[in-house]
Design a protein around this nucleic acid. Sequence first.
DNA 1: TATGAATGAGCATTCATTCAT
DNA 2: AATGAATGAATGCTCATTCAT
Lengths: 208, 208, 208, 208
Amino acid sequence: MTGATAARGRIDKREAILNAAFTVFARRGYDKACVQEIADEAGVAKPTVYNHLTDKETLFRHAILAAADAVTAENLAIVERLRDPGDDLSAALSDTAYRLLEVCAAERARDLRRLTYAQHANLPDLTATVLERTAQGVAEALADRLARLALAGRLRPCDPTVAAEQLLALLTGPLERRSQLGARDVPDTELRAVAEAAVRTFIAAYGT
Amino acid sequence: MTGATAARGRIDKREAILNAAFTVFARRGYDKACVQEIADEAGVAKPTVYNHLTDKETLFRHAILAAADAVTAENLAIVERLRDPGDDLSAALSDTAYRLLEVCAAERARDLRRLTYAQHANLPDLTATVLERTAQGVAEALADRLARLALAGRLRPCDPTVAAEQLLALLTGPLERRSQLGARDVPDTELRAVAEAAVRTFIAAYGT
Amino acid sequence: MTGATAARGRIDKREAILNAAFTVFARRGYDKACVQEIADEAGVAKPTVYNHLTDKETLFRHAILAAADAVTAENLAIVERLRDPGDDLSAALSDTAYRLLEVCAAERARDLRRLTYAQHANLPDLTATVLERTAQGVAEALADRLARLALAGRLRPCDPTVAAEQLLALLTGPLERRSQLGARDVPDTELRAVAEAAVRTFIAAYGT
Amino acid sequence: MTGATAARGRIDKREAILNAAFTVFARRGYDKACVQEIADEAGVAKPTVYNHLTDKETLFRHAILAAADAVTAENLAIVERLRDPGDDLSAALSDTAYRLLEVCAAERARDLRRLTYAQHANLPDLTATVLERTAQGVAEALADRLARLALAGRLRPCDPTVAAEQLLALLTGPLERRSQLGARDVPDTELRAVAEAAVRTFIAAYGT
DNA sequence: TATGAATGAGCATTCATTCAT
DNA sequence: AATGAATGAATGCTCATTCAT
């Protein structure tokens, strides 16, 4: 067996632990989650968890950040598609909007949001970091796209940061209320409706 | 001592406990908050807390609901003012918007939001109840006002529920991002800017 | 039941815990002793131990100091008898010496010594305090007696501190070696022999 | 590389481990010392420690015994010098006494004493062995010298075992009290004073 | 032989909750 | 009604020890 394989095994185990941690934290919340349960979920012994991640807190931070990066990657890929919106801008935006909602409504994003939010009192810096890596990043990427569209005359001249912020608000606000902060699964049709409504309002305000 | 006075004393004590509970829960989070600290904060002995409120969970529920009702009352009062918007609709909406933001940005509302959100995994029904009593109620009240305005021809005909939802989203979404989910105090001028931007977009989409 | 009785109960429990603690610490050593075993020995629940004594370390300190005070009281009472030595000084000293050896050879004193000594690396201040309260105190009391005896012409003029120190050394040194640092019970006749030899040497050096 | 060299390397590593062990045990005490720290101190991996020494306990025993032998060798060499005391017996004894005190006051001897003593409850046989190899051996060697001196008429006829025991007691007793069981470094002048006083008393009792 | 990685067992400490007063 | 005291149940974390390489 090669050293590379062994290293791979180590990394796999670490990843397994982080995944298990996210799962369990999402299931129980930070405080009620116990390291033993995470270890069980990951199929390792408790001290192995500590060997890899020091601390319950460290474990939490890494699990959260990993999830945040995954969610962000998905969202950025979606926004990126707006680089080439085609002829029907409204349709392109609706598509983007719907896809973003899909990601946000998915379990991982909801759990991530909830867990981060919940620990704000104890781990204030984590909130900031996560926000930066998720919402902020996506908002900026979207602002970039909107700026280009405005420059191309397909949107009225505007502050692209505010425009992006508002478009995202029009998506996530209604989503949150309808999902009851993630308690309820929002059916696909409703997702689509929210996306349509958001884009309609957005175009009314920012379209040419 | 009259019976009424005694009863008053009892009620006062209960209220003191609930206030203390909200304070401590906000400070530490549900799990890290311990009943002893709440008792101390309320100036009573631990068993007294149990005498009045049975359970840590019950205590939490009541403390949260009391805060929710207080916040809602404030918000409803603000929305109510839209019943008589005066000549300048845009100005009236901006005023309403700004005042709502003020309430949402205030500590109590932020704590309420955070605490509720955080316990979603453990107390799912509480999330629903709080949502109903706060956001939902305010959204409906706002929808009522918008419906009247549309009927009066001061807004274009529209689904008032969606309109209200979107106006609120345009307020709370940007607020949350700017406050970093409540981590940072948003200065008054920024609050005003968010309100203006929201109303501008809203009027563009729904104005006549 | 009166308040006094209740308070008594509280104090009794505290004392029971301290006694149990000393017993268990003596049996297992500081680190190997576990609080659960102490609680069991005292017939209380583990948290009760913590209610009364905060900490494993605090528990240890108090248990040790209580034992130290008890041992010291015994020794001081013995030394005190030298205040009235009677006609045969040598006999009086032998009696004192033997009684001191008895105390030092007894289990409690041996355990105390061992436990204190053992934790010196971790709790250096405790060593000092215990030494002060035991050896130091007894040495001083003995020096007082010897000073009076010298003054009365029954011992040759000398530094009573050194004399006391040496007399004690002549007792404890051989005792320790013979008991193998407390491992072996030294039979009474050996105790007596050590006392005799010590006093003989002492009188040879300090007698008139 | 010759087999001998390899063997040497092996032995060196073993010695390094034993030294590291003694250092760490002295620093932390038996229970608080952890094998990892010893391995680090020795510059080897943890399993290597186990390969060489089986057990934490075995490791402890060997480390202690090695130190005991070293201390004893020093002490025996000192006592040996009494074989040729010169004209001034008192001076020769004082010199011996002072040198013995120096060794006993040194860190290694103190640590050895403390560690052995501390583990008496758990490793009773070790106490006995160490005592035999150190105090006992030295006491016997000293008794041999004293016997010869008595035979040569330079000391009064006496039981040399008791005489040796008492001389040693007059040295170590005061030393321990003054060093607070090893907590405090005893300055050289005090060491000398103790030695002088001990020899003075000894000569008074046993001189011719 | 030497080691990186994994684990079983154990322990201090905390806390919600309940009695007895 | 209010409280001081007591407790059962958990949980984070450490460490001696062992595999697999």
